[in-house]
Simulated scan of single mutants.
Amino acid sequence: MSKVKYYYDSETLSYKKIERRKGRKLGIILLSILSSFLAGFILLVIYLNIPQIETPQEKALKRELQNMKLQYGLLNKKMDQIQEVLANVEDRDNNIYRLYFEANPIPEEQRKAGFGGINRYKDLEGFDNSRLIIQTSKRMDILTKQLVVQSKSLDEIAELAKEKESLLAAIPAIQPVKNEDLKRIASGYGWRTDPFTKVKKFHYGMDFSAPRGTPVYATGDGRVARADNRSTGYGNHIRIDHGYGYTSLYGHLYKYNVRRGQKVKRGDVIGFVGSTGRSEGPHLHYEIFKDDERINPINFYYGNLSPEEFDQILEKAQQENQSLD
């Protein structure tokens, strides 16, 4: 195909050859380059000012990011609820449970102490949502620590409760002889007339007058420390070690129903009323020791007496009469 081009001249009514000019050809080239740059610039401006076209993968990542923000928001709301419940438990722990068991409250600064030292959240910095993630992580760590502190506190309370339950079961709390088996409360704790010397002498226990062979009951849980007649004046007698510094003594027995080292429960029959040893007649001599010191047994009958019955016993025990031993 010929590269020579012609044009029609209407004046001469003939075709004439088109002559190419070198300068014009260069201009056309430059104009083309300029047009290309201009078109590219316009396209760039348009691209930067229209919404970015997202690929399916980018759309999926964007949805995942939005869902993550939503989940973090829900997590923070749940932590608010947990914090409220935990605060209530902490309040009851300090002001009810620990108070009841005579344990010191846990200081607020110990419960809600933060985390000092190194920046444990450094790896979470530098991202678009770093602030949200770091704040949530901090709350989660503090909440976890509070739960650990509270859990240990409740473990301690549980142990105190067990100990308290054992203590309440161990403390002597009933009469060693049933009311219906008593003839009378012969003598109480304090200065009384000695039945043999007829002089004032301090009586360290209570005397329960009852027929020979009347059952004698352990007044609290414990272990039989002694069951013999090798103690001056008591005759056949039993001593029960209740723990927590408490010991009970049952004197002048007719015979034993337990042996040394045996564990007993409150209400178990341990022996029978007699008149052995330094005794004027069948009765039970009953003493209570606290940390090796004798104390008044009258304060340890709350387990099986009504207020009216206790008042009657108290009145009789305070009479300065003659003891039976």
Rank of each mutant, 00 (worst) to 15 (best):
V269K: 10
T276E: 07
T276F: 07
L253A: 09
Q262F: 11
H283G: 12
G271M: 13
L284M: 03
K263Y: 05
V264I: 08
N257E: 09
H252E: 07
V269I: 14
G261H: 05
G261Y: 01
H252Q: 09
F272V: 06
H252S: 12
N257M: 04
N257K: 13
G267R: 03
G267V: 05
R266G: 05
D268Q: 11
G277Q: 02
R266K: 14
G251P: 11
Y254P: 06
H252G: 11
Y254G: 13
P282M: 09
G271P: 13
L249I: 14
Y256D: 03
G281P: 10
G277W: 03
G261P: 06
K265D: 00
P282T: 03
Y286D: 01
Q262S: 09
D268L: 12
S275L: 11
G271D: 04
L284S: 05
H283A: 06
S248Y: 02
T276V: 11
L249Q: 11
R278F: 13
R278W: 11
K255D: 15
Y286R: 04
R266T: 02
S275P: 14
H252M: 10
K255T: 15
V273R: 05
R259K: 15
Y254F: 14
V258Y: 05
Y250G: 10
G261V: 03
T276P: 08
R260W: 04
V273A: 10
P282I: 03
H252P: 10
E287W: 00
T276I: 05
L249V: 13
G274N: 03
R260F: 05
Y256C: 07
D268V: 04
H283I: 09
G271N: 09
H283R: 06
K255E: 14
H285D: 04
K263E: 05
G281C: 05
V258P: 14
G267K: 00
Y286F: 09
R266P: 06
V258F: 12
G277M: 05
G281E: 02
R278L: 15
G277H: 08
R260A: 14
S275G: 12
E280G: 15
K265Y: 03
L249G: 12
H283L: 12
R266A: 12
I270D: 05
V273L: 05
V264T: 00
G281R: 07
R260S: 14
V264D: 00
G281S: 11
I270Y: 04
H252V: 10
E280C: 15
D268H: 04
V269T: 12
P282G: 07
L284P: 01
H285E: 01
Y286M: 03
R260P: 13
Y286V: 01
R260H: 11
V273H: 04
S275A: 15
Y286N: 01
R278N: 14
G267E: 00
T276H: 10
L284H: 01
G267M: 04
Y250L: 06
Q262E: 14
V258N: 11
G261A: 09
S279V: 00
G271E: 00
I270V: 07
D268I: 02
S248Q: 02
Y256V: 02
V264E: 00
G277C: 06
L284F: 00
E280F: 14
R259M: 13
S275H: 12
T276M: 08
V273G: 11
L253W: 08
Y286H: 07
H285A: 03
R260T: 15
I270E: 00
G251N: 12
V258A: 12
R278H: 14
